[in-house]
Computed example of a mutant assay.
Amino acid sequence: MSEYERSRTMPAQPEHVFDQAAQVDQLDAWLPRALHVRAEDLPAVTVHEDDSDQDTAALLRPRPEQMRLEWGTRDQGDYAGWLQVAGMGSGASEVTVHLSFFDEEHDPGEERVHQALDASLQRLEQQVRLRENTAAG
């Protein structure tokens, strides 16, 4: 089993960050570019991976009361992850993403995972900033 985790501070209230992260129809805006989520009957979703051109049955569970988003493969236990948003005071939040690969064959490796997590958190921050600027303007 391999586990990876990355965090990023974002200049917004935790509720705003979680609301942006948990919008199922906008997950593609911040997830790794090769992944696309199609909602079915939540928590059921399908994840399409461009690199392999495969669809995978998955679960996505937003937990707004905990400001947490959890996901994983549905039929096989190959992969799971979560995103947690925590308030830091003064209008900032810390977002942590954690990934677990239970099957080593599905683990793309530390460097690729860390690059994907860092890029995803950066895109999420851009989405949050865009939303904050739109709300303020």
Rank of each mutant, 00 (worst) to 15 (best):
A22Q: 08
A58M: 05
E5H: 08
Q54C: 12
H36T: 10
Q13G: 11
E105H: 13
A21I: 01
Q54N: 15
E111G: 11
Q84P: 02
F18N: 01
Q76N: 14
E125D: 09
L35V: 06
Q23Y: 09
V97N: 01
Q20P: 02
F102C: 05
P64G: 01
Y4D: 03
Q126I: 09
A92C: 15
G81I: 00
L60I: 04
E125P: 00
E65F: 01
G137P: 07
M10A: 08
T96M: 08
V113N: 03
V47G: 02
L99Y: 08
Q84I: 06
V85Q: 00
D53M: 09
Q76D: 15
E5T: 13
T56C: 05
G109A: 10
P32S: 07
R74W: 07
P32I: 08
D25Q: 13
Q126A: 14
D19G: 03
E40W: 01
E105F: 10
T73Y: 06
E3Q: 12
S120L: 06
L121P: 01
N133I: 15
L99E: 04
Y79V: 01
R61E: 10
G91M: 09
D55V: 07
V128C: 00
P43E: 03
E110G: 11
P62M: 02
E132H: 12
P14V: 08
E94T: 12
V24C: 10
D55K: 03
D19K: 06
Y4S: 00
E111K: 12
V45P: 02
A135K: 09
G87H: 02
D75V: 02
H106N: 13
S100F: 00
T96F: 05
A86P: 09
D118E: 07
R38Q: 12
E111I: 10
P64V: 01
W30E: 01
F101P: 02
S7P: 03
G137R: 08
R38Y: 11
A29V: 09
L69G: 02
Q54G: 04
P11N: 13
A92E: 15
A116M: 03
D19P: 05
W30P: 02
Y79S: 10
E3C: 11
R6M: 10
E65Y: 08
R61D: 04
R38G: 10
G89T: 06
V24A: 08
R63M: 10
A80T: 09
E3T: 14
M67D: 00
S100K: 07
S52C: 06
L60Q: 03
L31P: 02
P14M: 08
T9S: 14
Q23M: 12
L60D: 04
D103R: 05
R131Y: 10
Q126R: 15
E3A: 13
G87R: 04
D78P: 02
D19A: 14
S100N: 10
H98F: 10
R8H: 04
R33C: 09
M67Q: 00
A86R: 12
R74G: 01
W82S: 14
E94A: 11
Y4C: 05
R6C: 06
Q66H: 09
H98P: 01
